[in-house]
Design a protein around this nucleic acid. Sequence first.
DNA 1: AATACGATCAACCGCCAAGTG
DNA 2: ACACTTGGCGGTTGATCGTAT
Length: 228
Amino acid sequence: MRKPCCDKQDTNKGAWSKQEDQKLIDYIRVHGEGCWRSLPQAAGLLRCGKSCRLRWINYLRPDLKRGNFAEDEEDLIIKLHALLGNRWSLIAGRLPGRTDNEVKNYWNSHLRRKLISMGIDPNNHRLNQKLPRTQNFSGSDTSSGSKTQACQPCKPRKSQGDNDQVSDAGSCLEDGTCTLPDLNLDLRMNIPSPSRSVPVVEERPKCMDSNITKELESSSSPTLVLFR
DNA sequence: AATACGATCAACCGCCAAGTG
DNA sequence: ACACTTGGCGGTTGATCGTAT
């Protein structure tokens, strides 16, 4: 039997109140992030540590960029998804100010549909021959362009979740349905001139960045529907 | 105006991997 | 080497809001 992450009976659940937000912000301002398990008690919150972490990362962090996704952000998400599959944290790591949750939600609510409407299978980024594909991506033709075939070389982080997404990986190379685009990926957001502290991806901790870079570099198979 | 329906997004859940003793 | 703890991730759920009927 798995141990719960915290003593559920003493914790609040559901939407956060302003007071709770403020407590969390105040505490992290003083003590910094980390030690999520003990944080709630220390901060005087009746929440489990996981909940605090999520709230901070997805909503309260000062460097979050909220609001609609720009067209270049959309394109980047699609490209990265073609490469990485549902590895939202990695994708979000290339989008300054965006969280994995936000990217995931945006994918599921907007981009998936968009690809489908273009006749592209959002799981493997391959053109679905049966569907019409007369529409431009993103409604305008500025960022859309050559639609090339894609498949997914990504290796799932774990054996479960991604499986269905990547099961098809590489198959397009074999079955010859995919034309080979030149993989012209500039997988980084251009930040015009950040007036302040939007953290650039390089700041992302751990080895994430080097991993993704390696992955991209080693990705010899053209997997993307490119929008350019 | 009321209701139904769909879309969106914040939050939770369960699993996994890394770290530690 | 093993067990346990903790942080992090992706999938899913449910509340809320907007739109159509």
